[in-house]
Structure formats: structure tokens, C-alpha cells
Nucleic acid binder design. Structure first.
Length: 479
RNA sequence: GGCGACGUGGCCGAGUGGUUAGGCAGAGGUCUGCAAAACCUCGUACAGCGGUUCGAUUCCGCUCGUCGCCUCCA
């Protein structure tokens, strides 16, 4: 099987056939950096991070472009509220965006173009549309004439005549039709602006994505993604202006949209005010857990945020993490049975041999992460069955199987961005001190000084360190 | 009003025309000095009503319900 994905444009699952053999050109609408990223932003960005990672795992070379809308009403307004220059505001939140996405283990895109760095391209595109009769200037503004583009509505599956014209669309004296949208906005006094053939102004929202995707990826690039609330009008408008400007060349070949992050089953959004920022959530849950939470549900399904769903994600993540530690513990113990007993590890061997195929089949089917993760749980389960026996002493075959299982588990988890070996502080005193305490407790237990042994364990527990006695000795972890 | 998605066991969440998803929580048990971790066992779920079929949770229709888009929004 090959990679299949759901194309919003055709509303069905299709095989992914890139424009250029093993190379994939992918554009994802990024954020407007005027505030802290919220969990809804993270959901979409993580979804496309998974897609990108999996495509690379499958041997594709991915050119991944993600923009920043760094000039826009929201930025100007927020900067005015705070009394800071609009550039400084955007710069600040771009930096924060990177910090937080890094924490969620989001791989950097190939390029992060900004609207303000591509004003020339934007102006050229608007000019082209004007020359070809799709756009008209009006008093310093330039609008796209929607009714001139016959295929308008194809992505969002709408008939122009069904849209409640004027009822909820921005009404403007300068527009010929309420559906028309701004390509270029005349500058109001005091607003940031750039010189243009229509006078000083700034780009409309939609045009920047067309200009930047065409610039970096060219027409008919492979995948265009974004949040589901961008389908209409943003992506619809992108298609209209891009295809109108390129003689009808298909703009993007596959359109992909993530599902909403909801809270109490309602869409989480800034305008509803019911949002949680990534920062807030990271104060309560480890970044690996948050990443797991965002990864364990199919990217197109709604994902409900609550303490309960996060707690469940935490427990599930811990199981995977603990499973990896269990394997590692046996491998590091360096003990091997003199007698071969390959039948004991046969089940694990079978699981190891099948896991990657299961994982791939799941991911090939429109990036089905829940199924892919189930394959990881199976691996952990088989390894635990083997190492959990009190009388277990690994033979050579078992050590090989465990070593393979461990490597595979970490590698496949990594393909969907789940980190099972969180970075430990290096060069600190923690490790030697812990092993000292564990040795002292072991001695106390051997001497039947259980009160002392339990005191050590309890005091450690109070400071968030959990001791676990296993057949291979005592281990510890933070809780 | 137009368009669309969805309704799976206590919870989260895949999937399929007839065969165990997976996870969380819970109960019992094994191991352990005790605890934790781990392992074993336990839940016969697919909104309702019709239809197609030898057989439907899975296909079709209707009803009910939830949610989304139609305005800035990931």
C-alpha cells in the first residue's frame, strides 16, 4: 500500500501521487502572531508535523512552507492597545510560537516566510489579477471579483447564490458585490503601509498565502493544509485568486484540514473566549503528554480538551514510557541466561516483526495515528509479559528481541513525534545520589529494617520520586 | 434558511457486511516484607425506527440529538 490521504477538495481518500516523484511540496497556513498560541493552533500544527514526519519516513523529500501573517488588523490593533510598535509585537509572538512548538516537538518547517517580506510578490500578483480582469481598484483598495471565477465555492462546496449575500459579509461601498474580497487595502492614517500602484496600503489577508506558496512551491504544488475554519473563505479565496492569476493552473493538488479542538464539545476559539493557551497547558502537563494527547486522535476528528481527557492521555503516555523503561532496564542489567530458551521470547519476536507493518498500514490510511499507536501498545504489552515474570532471565534471543523492540518502539513513536526518552539532565548529582539511596534502601531491606526502607521510599515519594522494585532491581522515576 | 460532519461499552477512541482494536478508569487474582510497577482474568458496545441481505454496528431511508461552516478565527 502507498500513502493515502483525505482530500478536502474531492471529499474522499485518495492515493498520494506527488507532482514530482519523491518530492512533496507542502504549504500550511500558519498563525497571526499577535497573542500566545492556543491549543487549537497547536492541534493543527502538530497534525501537519505528523504528516510531514510520516512522509519523510516514507522516503519523500518534503519542502514544507509555513507562513506568518505578520501584518494584519489584529496585529495593528493589539500593538496600539499595548503601545508597542507592530513589528515588535509580531516579533515577540513569533519567538514565543517557536518556543512552544519546540516544546511540543514540532519539527521546524523548511521556510517560514512572512507577509511583510513578500510585499513585492503580493503586489505583482494583484497586478496580474487586475490586468486579467479579475480584480478592480476602487479608491485605493483592490478587490477580487468573485463572480468572475466560475469555480468559486468548489472547495467549501458552496453555491455562490446560497451565500447570504451582504447579511454577514463585510459590506463596503467600494465593493461591486458583497462577496468580493480585498486583495489590497488602502492605508488609513497612521497605519503601516507600503507603496503600490494603487497608493500606500497593505495586503489583504488571503493574497499573501497565494503569493508565498506560488513563490516557494510554484503552481500545482502537492499539499495545502490548514485549520478547518480556513476552508471558507480563506482557502476558497486562495484558490480563486491563484488559479485566476496562473491561467487556471490548478493551485494545490491535495487540500488537507485538521479537526477542531473543542472544549465541552464546542469549538475552542479566540472569538468565543473559551481557549486555553499552550503555555497554560504546559504548566500542568509535561510536553510529552500534551504531544501524546494531540497525536492519539485522528487528525480530522474533533478533539475535546478537558482535565479528564488530558489525564487519560497522561496515563496512556506513561504506559508507553514505562514500557520503554522496562525494556531498557533488562537490557542495561547485562544479565544473560547460559541456556537458550528462544520459545520464551517467541511472542515478542513475532510482535516486533509485525509492528512496523501494522504501523505503516495505519499511517498509510490517511495518517491513522490511533491505530498506529495501538501497534506501539502491542509491542509494549508483549515486552512486559516477557520481562514481568519474576523468574525471567533473558537468553540471547530474548535480549535481541528486547533490543529490537526497544529500538523500534522509540523509532516509530518518533515518527509521530512522541518522545519516549525525555531528555534527562546530564552531569548532575541526581543519578549518583539516587543510586546511593537505592543501595542504602536495598541494604536496609536485606537487614529487614523495613521501617527505614519505607521511610526512604516515602520521603522520596513526597518529593515526587517513585521507587519501583522490579525483578531486575529497583528503579526510580519522577511522577 | 443553505451546506457539511458526527452519534461506538463508565470515559477516550479505531474499525468492519458474519472473526480481539487500543488506551483510561473499575473489580478480582499473581508477584512483593509492604507499596508501586508489571502480568492474568472480567465488560458481548455500536442513538432510535424501518428497509436491503442468509446475516448490519458496518449499506439505504427516515426520526431524534450534538457540532461545525455560511463573519475574523488553526
Amino acid at each position: 500500500m502507498s500513502v493515502h490521504l483525505y482530500n478536502s477538495l474531492t471529499q474522499q481518500v485518495e492515493p498520494l501521487i506527488p507532482r514530482d516523484d519523491k518530492r512533496i511540496a507542502m504549504y500550511v497556513c500558519g498563525v497571526t502572531p499577535y497573542d500566545f498560541p492556543h491549543m487549537g493552533n497547536a492541534r493543527t500544527i502538530v497534525a501537519f508535523d505528523i504528516i510531514r514526519r510520516y512522509l519523510e519516513y516514507r522516503g519523500f523529500q518534503v519542502m514544507y512552507v509555513q507562513n506568518f501573517t505578520d501584518i494584519d488588523d489584529k496585529i495593528i490593533n493589539r500593538a496600539n492597545e499595548q503601545g508597542v510598535p507592530w513589528q515588535a509585537l509580531a516579533e515577540r509572538f513569533i519567538a514565543i510560537y517557536f518556543e512552544e512548538m519546540d516544546a511540543l516537538n514540532v519539527q521546524r518547517a523548511s521556510v517560514y516566510p512572512r507577509a511583510t517580506e513578500n510585499i513585492d510578490e503580493i503586489i505583482s500578483l494583484v497586478q496580474a489579477l487586475e490586468e486579467q480582469g479579475y480584480a478592480y481598484a476602487a479608491d485605493g483598495d483592490v478587490y477580487f471579483e468573485v463572480r468572475k471565477f466560475a469555480r468559486y465555492g468548489e472547495l467549501s462546496n458552496r453555491d455562490i447564490n446560497d451565500l447570504r449575500s451582504g447579511a454577514r459579509v463585510e459590506v463596503s461601498e467600494r465593493k461591486r458585490d458583497p462577496l468580493d474580497f480585498a486583495l489590497w487595502k488602502r492605508a488609513k492614517p497612521g497605519e503601516p503601509s507600503w507603496e503600490s500602484p494603487w497608493g500606500p496600503g497593505r495586503p489583504g489577508w488571503h493574497i499573501e498565502c497565494s503569493a508565498m506558496s506560488l513563490k516557494f512551491l510554484g503552481p500545482s504544488f502537492d499539499i495545502h493544509g490548514g485549520g478547518p475554519d480556513l476552508i471558507f473563505p480563506h482557502h476558497e479565496n486562495e484558490i480563486a485568486q491563484s488559479e485566476a492569476a496562473t491561467d487556471g493552473k490548478m493551485f494545490a493538488r491535495y487540500w488537507m484540514h485538521s479537526g477542531f479542538l473543542t472544549i465541552n464539545k464546542e469549538k475552542m476559539s479566540k472569538s468565543l473566549g473559551n481557549f486555553f493557551t499552550v503555555r497554560e497547558v504546559l504548566q500542568r502537563y509535561a510536553p510529552e503528554v500534551v504531544r501524546y494527547f494531540l497525536t492519539a486522535v485522528h487528525y480530522r476528528s474533533p478533539l475535546d480538551y478537558s482535565d479528564q481527557t488530558l489525564d487519560q492521555a497522561k496515563s496512556a503516555y506513561e504506559r508507553l514510557h514505562q514500557g520503554a523503561l522496562n525494556m531498557q532496564r533488562v537490557l542495561m542489567a547485562g544479565v544473560q541466561a547460559p541456556e537458550a530458551a528462544p520459545e520464551r521470547s517467541a511472542a515478542l519476536r513475532t510482535a516486533v516483526d509485525g509492528a512496523e507493518v501494522e504501523f505503516q498500514q495505519a499511517m498509510d490510511d490517511d495518517f491513522n495515528t490511533p491505530r498506529a499507536i495501538a501497534a506501539l501498545f502491542n509491542l509494549v504489552s508483549e515486552a512486559n509479559k516477557l520481562t514481568g515474570d519474576a523468574d525471567f532471565v533473558p537468553d540471547a534471543a530474548a535480549l535481541t528481541a528486547l533490543s529490537d523492540a526497544h529500538a523500534l518502539l522509540l523509532r516509530l513513536a518518533g515518527v509521530v513525534g512522541i518522545v519516549l526518552n525525555p531528555r534527562q539532565e546530564e552531569g548532575g548529582l541526581t543519578e549518583p545520589l539516587m543510586s546511593l539511596l537505592i543501595d542504602l534502601r536495598a541494604q536496609a531491606r536485606a537487614d529487614k529494617h523495613f521501617a527505614l526502607a519505607d521511610a526512604i521510599r516515602n520521603r522520596l515519594s513526597e518529593i515526587g520520586v517513585q521507587l519501583e522494585d522490579t525483578p531486575q532491581g529497583t528503579t526510580w522515576r519522577r511522577v
